[in-house]
Design a binder for these strands. Structure first.
Length: 792
DNA sequence: GGAGCTTCAATTTTT
DNA sequence: TTGAAGCTCC
């Protein structure tokens, strides 16, 4: 089975595969100016060749933005600029990976390898690993993910005896995050009359206190959250001019992707780093700025001309992706925004199909109609499933499409569902790794000190925390000197705490000497996590166990593919893994599937057929973002992003009634439908048509090839809710006595339908059956839970 | 410590 | 409606 970490290393692999195609760099280089550049249009060429001085590239949707960036870097290399002096920053790992891969194909993987290319966070974390000691961080600092951060905020709210109904951890964390991204330290927060006033008005005057404590506790844990990676890098270059000078010298050429999404902090860092040589190239599209709610500042792109008055401006306006109708429709939408840089996106492709509109009575019908359209389109247009995407405004809408697609046996993947790295078992194991590398990491410690259960309960933990707080110590230091606390804890507790400290210390001793993989493996075994999962032999535990194996395999591969020995340590692995997201764990078997995701996560992707769904007022545009013109314009840009993902066909849909939180709500079609110029629409949009428009799909139940579903696949699918998935045979479902079930029997499962018992093992009540289901493939089920009905 | 209950909240989210 | 979190009871 291909494992999840694969992607991390794909770059190297693909480069190796692509080796034959790589033209010898040395000889290729001479012709670079001519041949190499021929692949580009005139505007793109200009943007690539102007490598000295500041450049702003406004790159419309589908205009070859990545192409320009990659060719520009390749061109820099051809001018004998060493790869180590090129810094290229992206927002996603995926974008960085793709670019590196493409550059590798142009100039050879060897040279591409030494580029400083990655996300803001990953590049900065690397620098901070090296320089963080100047700010008081060891190189083994932990990176807190959002879950860690929120849980710490929540804990602090409790400690300060504040009401978490008023101080909602998520919101408070959001305030802290946005403060950091605007370069506001806790001290600055306290002295900002405006912020304090605002918090007072929202009846949360103590956010500043929470922020201050939060920052202290992160530091005490030797930890940085995502924002700290940026903030600390900024502080580093602000307070240590010699460090700044060093990196200014090193990064003589700086490139930034998706510049419209940079926040103030990122902007300041880039500005500082590039201020010496000013060889900076930023690429972006103001029309695709959709993250202002997270602090992205569209002004950064608009103000570029003030920061670098002698800049070159390049506009890429030719769209290579979409048909003329799609480009026309998208243009007619974005034209309604006031704030934008003027540009004319055009396409030379055929006019293509007009934008279709589906009106459904209910949200369920919407799912059903779209799924059927997809089934027919695959057949009629010879599409692969991977050519299709369903987009929506909120994640909650995914369920309906999942159910509808599953009923028609159309393979799909949900982008951005529960991340692999957020799963409990993964976080537990990583927690052990984290504590081993950095025993001051209190989030990790709290997570695992009693998992697997070792008799260290909430009471003990609270007392430890109390002592730590009152004596200004760290929990780990207390654990190391348990003998001083004989009066505080009873003998048994002291023994157990000592044993835990000894366990972690044992791992720590091996940190320097053992191979990362061997150490990780031995931790997984001896910590008792593996044993805990074997304790009950349920399918859930089996899949958890498989997930742990994937992480371990990932470490093995990580170790094997690193260039330098210092990168093969467990802490190096931990740092890279902390910055990965679900999108980075795509698997080979997930390739040819319909993608369903939010419009936000679709940015940067393209599909032949795109379905933009849930186009209703208060949903898309979102109710929370319809208050000001600015907010509404951002929603409109989001819709623009959704439309411009499509190469050949766009279908819009809305429902008259939608269940929201269990209550049916009547809805009004989105203003965005009306805002598309009618000439690009398949049929005029009528506010209240007598006959709801229905597509003319036939009821042919064409059998799409049945896809065997493995446990892995099931895991990625959210289970269908019990009530909405009636028994496949339609009969009322009553389970039969598990004791009567024998191998070879035909049975029916409420969710998986009919199947055959292949094997039985274990003793009641933990008797486990291996069942082969016609529709869902082979599954392992515990009889006491499975509710199987015997058919014959 | 965990099963099983109730309660309550509920956008978007590259790292 | 889902789901997470908190609570109670063994």
């Amino acid at each position: 089975m291909p494992f999840i970490m694969n992607v991390l290393f794909k770059v190297a692999k693909i480069n190796n595969l692509g080796e034959e195609k790589i033209i010898n760099f040395g000889s290729y280089r001479k012709d670079m100016g001519k041949d190499f550049i021929k692949d580009l249009n005139e505007a793109q060429q200009k943007a690539v060749l102007a490598f000295k001085g500041p450049s702003l590239v406004i790159a419309g949707a589908g205009s070859g933005k990545t192409r320009v960036l990659t060719y520009r870097i390749a061109y820099l290399l051809s001018q004998d600029i060493p790869p180590g002096s090129i810094l290229a920053l992206t927002f996603t790992n995926k974008a960085a990976r793709e670019m590196k891969e493409r550059i590798g194909r142009l100039v050879g993987p060897e040279r591409a390898r030494y580029l400083w290319m990655g996300t803001f966070h990953s590049v900065f974390s690397k620098i901070l690993r090296r320089e963080g000691h100047l700010l008081g961080y060891p190189s083994t600092y932990t990176i807190f993910d959002t879950t860690d951060s929120k849980s710490l905020v929540k804990k602090i709210i409790k400690e300060l005896d504040l009401n978490d109904q008023i101080y909602k951890p998520g919101e408070v964390y959001g305030r802290i995050s946005s403060a950091k991204n605007n370069l506001i330290t806790p001290q600055a927060y306290f002295s900002s009359a405006q912020l304090m006033e605002m918090d007072k008005r929202t009846r949360r005057p103590r956010i500043a206190d929470i922020y201050k404590l939060y920052a202290l506790r992160c530091k005490k844990s030797n930890a940085m959250d995502f924002d700290d990676l940026l903030l600390n890098l900024y502080i580093l270059i602000r307070d240590f001019p010699e460090v700044l000078a060093r990196y200014q010298e090193q990064f003589r050429y700086i490139l930034v992707d998706e510049y419209q999404d940079t926040n103030y902090l990122q902007y300041r860092i880039i500005n500082q780093l590039s201020s010496r040589y000013k060889n900076i190239c930023v690429v972006g599209d103001d029309a695709q700025s959709i993250y202002s709610f997270r602090g992205a500042r569209i002004e950064n792109i608009l103000n570029f001309k003030h920061d670098y008055p002698d800049y070159h401006l390049f506009k890429l306006e030719r769209n290579y992706r979409s048909t003329r109708n799609i480009v026309g429709a998208a243009n007619s939408i974005i034209a309604r925004n006031r704030d934008q840089i003027s540009k004319k996106i055009w396409s030379k492709k055929e006019a293509g199909e007009k934008v279709k509109l589906i009106r459904a009575t209910t949200d369920n019908e919407e799912g059903y109609l779209i799924a059927n359209l997809i089934q027919d389109a695959v057949y009629a247009h010879q599409l692969h499933h991977q050519d299709i995407a369903i987009l929506y405004r909120t994640n909650a809408q995914s369920r309906i499409f999942e159910e509808a697609l599953r009923k028609l046996n159309i393979p799909y993947k949900v982008y951005g569902s529960l991340s692999f790295y957020q799963r409990k078992e993964i976080k537990d194991l990583l927690g052990y790794f984290r504590l081993t590398v950095n025993p001051y990491d209190e989030e990790a410690l709290r997570r695992i000190i009693n998992y697997p259960a070792r008799g260290i309960g909430q009471t003990t933990l609270s007392r430890l925390e109390e002592i730590a707080a009152s004596r200004d110590k760290r929990i780990w230091d207390i654990l190391l000197s348990m003998d001083d606390y004989a009066g505080v804890f009873n003998q048994g507790t002291i023994r157990r705490l000592k044993a835990f400290a000894a366990l972690i210390n044992g791992y720590r001793e091996n940190l320097q000497t053992m191979e990362a993989f061997d150490l990780a493996y031995s931790i997984a075994e001896s910590s008792g996590i593996m044993k805990d999962l074997h304790y009950e032999n349920s399918p859930e535990n089996l899949s958890k166990w498989e997930n742990l194996q994937e992480i371990l395999n990932g470490i093995k591969e990580f170790v094997e593919t690193q260039d330098q020995a210092e990168d093969t340590t467990l802490d190096s692995f931990l740092q890279s893994v902390s910055l990965l997201t679900d999108a980075d764990s795509e698997k080979e078997e997930d390739r040819d599937k319909v993608t369903i995701m939010t419009a936000h996560s679709a940015k940067g992707l393209e599909y032949r057929f795109v379905y933009v769904t849930g186009l209703e007022e208060e949903l898309f545009p979102s109710r929370m973002s319809s208050n000001t013109r600015e907010e509404l314009e951002e929603e409109r840009r989001l819709f623009y992003v959704a439309l411009t993902r499509a190469m050949e066909q766009v279908t819009l849909s809305y429902a008259n009634t939608r269940y929201r939180w269990g209550v049916p709500v009547n809805s009004v079609p989105s203003r965005f439908i009306r805002e598309i110029e009618p000439e690009y629409m398949d049929q005029p949009f009528e506010e209240n048509p007598d006959e709801p428009y229905r597509p003319t799909w036939k009821f042919s139940q064409k059998k799409v090839e049945s896809v065997p579903v493995t446990t892995e696949k099931m895991k990625r699918m959210k289970p269908v809710s019990r009530t909405s998935a009636p028994s496949p045979s339609g009969i009322h479902f009553t389970a039969d006595d598990p004791a009567e079930i024998q191998a070879g029997m035909q049975v029916e499962h409420p969710r998986f339908g009919q199947g055959k018992i292949i094997n039985l093992e274990g003793e009641p009540p933990n008797r486990k059956a291996t069942v082969f289901f016609k529709e869902h493939g082979q599954k392992q089920l515990l009889l006491k839970f499975a509710k199987l009905k015997i058919i014959r």
